[in-house]
């Protein structure tokens, strides 16, 4: 991001940057930087926190009025998010799941239990979509059942053809996994309160059949002799922080 600022400034555009990694800004030294100590993925602050979003945005834009630079301002009102950023103890997960154990090696069992779980998540997801008119689900173009079945076809070792002509089968699988996570996490966030990323992650990665199967798919694809598939499995299916926490 800082390097992009350098290129655009050289082309005659004034630039100002929100920075989440101070070390990078100090190294690259773009013209104007506001460093904020927020969680990666939330450069303007937390969801629905309009006051913080506006404060960060305005402070970053005010740097455009600086007389000389490079200038790096530290936002003292943001603080290191730590290991459990902004937990909301009032949050109650609106998705109530039956407790299930699943054997990923048994594809029929996996299919039945994943679809049963999705049937429990879907009413909340639909209710949220109706209320907010917004979802980030659907990158592959598949619906949720199609998404689940496509992922299961990989787990079964019989990958179906790509559902999206613009994506290779392996890339479609990777995006299908993203979509499955999105479907669950959007539903779980539809409640009073604003759950932290860790609250949502603890639920998803520790309590759902979907996560158990994604983890199994990761282990399977990591053994693949196809380099691109092995890379997807190793790096892109399970966030590194959960790989370490779950000791995968």
């Amino acid at each position: 991001m800082s390097a992009l600022g350098h290129f655009l400034e050289e082309e005659g555009l004034a630039t100002t940057i929100v920075s989440l990694i101070r070390l990078h800004s100090e190294t690259i030294q773009p013209p104007r930087t506001l460093f904020v100590d927020f969680e990666l993925g939330r450069p303007l602050g937390g969801p629905h926190d309009k006051a913080t979003q506006r404060r960060v945005l305005e402070a970053t834009l005010r740097l455009l009025e600086s007389d000389a630079g490079p200038v790096l301002l530290v936002d003292d009102d943001s603080s290191d998010p730590g290991t459990d950023p902004d937990p909301d103890l009032s949050w109650r997960n609106p998705v109530l799941l039956e407790s299930r154990s699943v054997d990923p090696a048994d594809i029929e069992d996996s299919r039945a239990k994943l679809l049963a779980e999705i049937a429990e998540v879907e009413p909340v997801y639909r209710k949220r979509l109706e209320a907010l008119k917004r979802t980030t689900f659907g990158v592959t173009g598949l619906d949720i059942e199609g998404t689940a079945l496509y992922i299961l076809s990989y787990l079964a070792g019989r990958a179906e053809p790509t559902p999206n002509p613009d994506m290779s089968p392996n890339l479609a699988m990777r995006f299908a996994v993203d979509d499955l996570k999105t479907f669950y996490l959007e539903a779980a966030s539809f409640a009073d309160g604003t759950p932290s990323s860790r609250q949502l992650g603890l639920w998803f990665w520790r309590q759902t059949v979907a996560a158990t199967l994604i983890i199994a798919l990761r282990a399977q694809t990591m053994q693949s002799e196809i380099k691109s598939l092995k890379l997807i499995g190793t790096v892109f299916l399970v966030p590194r922080i959960w790989v370490e926490e779950l000791e995968l």
């Binding site: 969680e39 990666l40 993925g41 939330r42 450069p43 303007l44 602050g45 937390g46 969801p47 629905h48 309009k50 979003q53 945005l57 917004r134 980030t136 659907g138 990158v139 995006f175 993203d178 999105t182 996490l185 959007e186 966030s189 604003t194 759950p195 990323s197 949502l200 992650g201 790096v235 892109f236 299916l237 399970v238 966030p239 590194r240 922080i241």
Partner: peptide, 23 residues
């Protein structure tokens, strides 16, 4: 939608409020 290659940053903020990423 978001198709960033990395899974190693929070996406739940973006899911809940686009202004966390694109204000």
């Amino acid at each position: 939608v978001m198709t960033h290659i990395s899974p190693n940053y929070d996406r739940t903020g973006f899911m809940q409020d686009i202004n966390t990423v694109l204000p």
